[in-house]
Design a protein around this nucleic acid. Structure first.
Lengths: 221, 221
DNA sequence: TTTTCAAAAATTGGATCCAATATATAATAT
DNA sequence: ATATTATATATTGGATCCAATTTTTGAAAA
């Protein structure tokens, strides 16, 4: 045989292709808050019918990334400063517990992986990469085997925050501070110091919150 | 005018009706783990076409209540004991922080509401009601105005645990202990003791975890 | 010119149809 | 009798069509 058989069930559905693309576009800020998602337009762009687009929108709505109004369609969800503030608190709480339980869990450390994300974060020249690498850095320290639900909640929260973080990161120079704080968190992680890592993570997230809220308040006068 | 005009946009879509009903059926354990959700069957039962059913299933999948396999349809998600264990930890973490921030937030207390749920919980004769009342009791102490995202995450976690909790509650007599623990939490809430309320809530959830895990382990030999 | 009303166009929500894949059943081979 | 193959049926995924609602545009009235 000169070809490799592939299970057809592994091919992505039209719904999933559209969902992934729309989710990505929202997260990276390509679709602005309040932007209408026209079913027909999206269907044409993806060369499919409206049904997969509707299903993708239904999925995005459950993630809080879009809001739909009956008979009026879907728009990209705008997140208020109060909600952003709260989501950061929630992140700080969940992520600090995630790293604590990861360290306490006796699982092997991901040190090589974490280190390489840390290095990549410090070296990244394009703001678009920072946010992805930041997510990878943090999540690689959480126990993927033992904490899939923590990680899923964290990713959901990050999905909702990312476009604001990206806009901020493009315009401010908080990367040096973040890199330094990452180094401290990594140090505590490698030293197996669960409480210190949890506290550093909590404080790091809260610092990012303060910075973003300041930025948004100055921008939304 | 002898009739009251109602905004048509307030009518529920077929998708929402199906979604609500399926979500409810899964939560209360009417649909067993692994049960197949046949689109055609459900569409017939609700006297609609398959499209709203598919959209409802897409939404349920994002909530982790069902799992779909390409070309094979959707089944009710079975949650492993390890996942249940983790979800309880996540609940304990998030709910203890939710009650802490609620108490610290200077918002008015919901005491009357909380008390009435507490009383109803203690008086409930039907196990089916316990789980709903338990949820209402706890969530009424969290700050709906300032913590909608906390509450949303908590409800999502509870949705996934509820059918196991309900099965357990029907067969064990942990209600007396729960009622006593609720009373202590309520006491700390009303006293404005954020740290004590947080600790009691955390311990309460962890106790419920231990109890449910024991039950499930004995049941799944 | 501005406001109101009517008609046309755009869009959403759901029904039906068709194609593709999976599953069950029947027929054939061993 | 069992295993394999072929056929029929069931189910999912998406395309198309129709009905309902919203938005836009154009015409008429003030």
């Amino acid at each position: 045989m000169s070809f490799k058989p592939v299970d057809v069930a592994q091919s992505k559905s039209a719904t999933t292709i559209v969902f992934d693309a729309l989710r990505r576009a929202i997260i990276i800020g390509e679709l602005d808050d309040g932007a209408a998602l026209r079913q027909d337009e999206i269907a044409k762009a993806f060369n499919t019918s409206r049904i997969p687009v509707r299903e993708a929108i239904a999925r995005l709505e459950q993630l809080g990334l879009v809001e739909t109004r009956r008979y009026k369609g879907a728009v990209v969800a705008a997140i208020s400063i109060e909600d952003i503030d709260e989501i950061f608190d929630l992140r700080a709480t969940v992520e600090s517990d995630a790293i604590r339980r990861s360290i306490l869990s006796k699982q092997g450390k991901n040190s090589d992986q974490v280190r390489s994300y840390h290095r990549a974060f410090g070296e990244a020249m394009i703001p678009e990469e920072w946010s992805d690498l930041n997510r990878k850095f943090h999540c690689s320290m959480y126990d993927a085997e033992g904490s899939p639900n923590y990680i899923s909640v964290i990713n959901g929260l990050l999905d909702r925050l990312d476009r604001y973080l990206r806009a901020q990161l493009s315009l401010t120079d908080g990367m040096d501070l973040a890199t330094r704080e990452h180094a401290l968190i990594l140090e505590a992680y490698e030293a197996g110091d669960a409480e210190r890592a949890a506290k550093l993570t909590y404080d790091h997230v809260q610092g990012a919150k303060a910075s973003l809220i300041n930025y948004l308040k100055s921008k939304r006068v």
